[in-house]
Amino acid sequence: MSEYFQQQSNAKTHYGDIDLDERIIDRLPQGAVVKGCRGHGASNWNRTARLDFEIDDQLHSYFLKILTGPKGRPMVHGEYESMRLIHESVPKFSPMPLAWGSCIDPTQHFILFTFHKLSQGLPPIPQFVNAVAQLHTVKRNPSGKFGFHITTYNGTLAQDNTWCDTWEEFYVKGMERILELEEDARGPSRELRKISAPFLSKVIPRLLRPLETQGRKIDPVLIHGDLWIGNVSAQAGSCDPLMFDASAFWGHNEYELSTMRPLNNEWARECMEGYHALIPKSEPIEDWDARNSLYAIRTYAHDSALYPDEPKFRRKLMEEMQNLVAQFAEDHNEARG
């Protein structure tokens, strides 16, 4: 386990019986007889459970997530739409979302998925990168725009998925939103604000504008959006990966690899190499490492906002932003093509 992800991986494990709300029961198939619902798995933001029921003496299981609070309903709606499109693209590598809604208790909200048995540890690298590459090649956004048709959430953080004509515009808007949420969570930092200005106005254009100028073009592909090691597992009985807990959008395929950089280990490096053996790096290739660093900064900003009591996340965020500002802020005019 990477030292960086220790905090995120310390999720609460759920146990014990769960009393099912009638509105959840209403979403089961006709003739279903509930046999039990018990805590199953672990999560940072919601309660998770295995729901068992019988139809004509045949046992079936669903995976249930229950969220509490005012953000719960838009969170399950965003996850449902994210996983619906991902499952349409790679059904072998993702659970099918079945239903979502609010409980009789208006503070509680739910989402149901097909149930999958998982094994311990991460999936083999060849199978994992093949699944991600399939996700990025099956669908293209026919409108050619970047964004998503609904607000999605990374943890409890609402993403700015406003439709944009360029990847640069979309990424700037997303970073502006996350930096605002990070400041809301931790309080203002004069140093971070000072770094953010050239980062947003100079570094991002310098690294992303060349992707869409001088005859180059990015096709927006469906992105999982939060594909860190806590949101992928190996399916029991096979080597196939299972990707879940998505915060999807249509974007640049290389963004998906941003969560590999904080791992900083051989597994992550082999994943990136294996992925790009299937899907080549975007031009200009010489900017690839800096782009990967740029995309990882959004991960650092998310974590800094989600875990405001952990100082290392803001520290890492500022260090990485400063590194790119030092390298690229002065030559940003080259991005104008």
Score class of each variant (00 low, 15 high):
157 L>Q: 13
203 V>E: 02
246 A>L: 03
11 A>P: 05
32 A>H: 07
188 P>L: 02
213 T>Q: 10
262 P>C: 00
54 E>R: 14
107 T>G: 05
21 D>T: 09
26 D>I: 05
44 N>L: 14
310 E>M: 11
28 L>I: 09
21 D>C: 07
305 A>K: 12
152 T>M: 06
251 G>V: 10
324 L>M: 07
8 Q>R: 14
249 F>N: 07
229 I>V: 12
330 E>H: 13
212 E>H: 10
27 R>G: 03
68 T>F: 11
65 K>A: 04
11 A>C: 11
112 L>C: 03
204 I>F: 01
336 R>D: 12
248 A>P: 05
320 E>C: 10
292 N>S: 14
301 A>L: 10
292 N>E: 08
274 G>N: 05
252 H>T: 04
213 T>S: 15
137 T>R: 15
2 S>Q: 05
220 P>W: 04
39 G>I: 06
92 K>S: 14
78 G>Y: 03
214 Q>P: 03
223 I>F: 02
125 I>Q: 04
259 T>N: 09
301 A>K: 10
48 T>W: 00
77 H>M: 13
289 D>Q: 13
169 E>L: 12
36 G>V: 08
78 G>Q: 02
201 S>K: 15
201 S>R: 15
318 M>R: 13
256 E>R: 09
119 S>I: 04
137 T>M: 12
304 S>A: 15
66 I>P: 00
335 A>H: 03
